[in-house]
Nucleic acid binder design. Structure first.
Lengths: 220, 220
DNA sequence: AATTATGATAAGGTTACCCTAATAAGGAGG
DNA sequence: CCTCCTTATTAGGGTAACCTTATCATAATT
């Protein structure tokens, strides 16, 4: 039996692995940071997951999902994004309101229900944040797709997807940026860690922290 | 905060109260029976619910929901039936497959989501089993609606609703009885506790245990 | 090599829910 | 009155997740 807490850890580990495909291991400290749980709690959970064969663990190095763990993670994320899509496209939730609700739904969604929902919505490709419904850890995404921090000055880009954490979304919603939006880079200042962009004839400044949560693709 | 276990108890107490509106109290033994939990577990939960002000308890007499408890129960049951309706009408679940899935969904459904789902489905009146979406404990239902065990011989009735427990539903599905179906009573034998009915030109025998789970209304 | 920073873990506690086994409290009948 | 049965409750445990505090072990840096 997989429990809610377990699934949350697995999901977070998966996402950390995706964010940083270069380094194979996720550090315990990252998990402590991301989950908001105390060190011994994280430690305890790591052991539980190792004992269930979902995680590999090297002291002082970090953790990595086994293939079984990855499979579980991808499945939960799929359910999460299906619900997000449903809430947004069918129940008229705003895109920054769907995350928490989906967070609860994903854990009690059977595979049967997941598939039924998927079919009902005619197999959408992505969630409202632009993230793919079907996930794989070694999905090499379109090499044209880069993080906004790597975008070059005086070029136009389209926003492909954004990370679905409530704070990021709420902010993006306020400044009217979402997948599909076209932007122009006025300036990318790595020293001061901000990017100035233009869309809808308005100029907006985006800090690097946020710019790391946005994936874009160069136009033409 | 209401937890899943608590909510399950509240719901079951509510349903027992509805089944037997004459006797105001639900006996602990009935709860033990219905929940399948051990006596001390039930006892402990009763105390928890009393301390939260959701339950009244008289030793050796039984329990009764407070108005707050009733409110919570009705809310959960509403969510349950909304999900049942959604699964059945939109996701093509068969009517005997929806209960368990709804059982899990109801507990993590926010009021916001409940209302959104309700609106999406255009405010259905009943769930696929014929039970009302909006519930109240002192709903005196239509006085014309009676339990099948009280039906009289040689009259025609329409099935209004059935109790949504998996065993009952599976059986009813096999013999093709559901809300809306018209039946004729060939014989009602209280001594042997069975009823013989006719529908679709077929004769079927129904024991009293099942007949107690079926509500019907006399035709013409 | 010594110090500092970071990571790991032991010890002990909490809450929500569940259990078994044993005991106590009420009521019915001989 | 005392036994028997139902009902209630106590005592003692377990597990999944969390916590704090304190003490290790190792890595990194000076």
């Amino acid at each position: 039996m997989s429990f809610r807490g377990e699934e949350d850890y697995i999901k977070q580990i998966f996402q950390l692995q995706c964010d940083n495909p270069s380094s194979a291991y996720v550090k315990t400290s990252e998990l402590i940071q991301l989950t908001g749980h105390a060190a011994p709690s994280v430690n305890e959970m790591i052991k539980r997951l190792v004992s269930k064969g979902l995680l590999e663990y090297n002291r002082y190095v970090g953790v990595r999902l086994t293939s079984e763990g990855e499979h579980i993670a991808a499945n939960i994320i799929k359910k999460h994004r299906l619900w997000e899509t449903f809430l947004h496209d069918y129940l008229n939730y705003k895109w920054d309101e769907i995350h928490d609700e989906a967070e609860a739904l994903e854990h009690i969604t059977s595979d049967r229900l997941s598939e039924a929902l998927y079919a009902f919505m005619a197999h959408p490709k992505t969630c409202p944040h632009g993230n793919p419904i079907e996930v794989s850890i070694d999905d090499q995404h379109d090499s044209e797709e880069i993080l906004l921090i790597n975008a070059s000055t005086h070029h136009a880009y389209r926003i492909i997807r954004v990370k679905d954490t409530p704070d990021v979304l709420e902010y993006l919603d306020r400044i009217h940026l979402k997948p599909g939006t076209t932007i122009r880079i006025n300036e990318n200042d790595p020293f001061n860690e901000f990017i100035e962009i233009k869309n809808d004839d308005r100029t907006k400044t985006i800090g690097y922290r946020l710019a790391k949560s946005i994936v874009v693709k160069k136009l033409e």
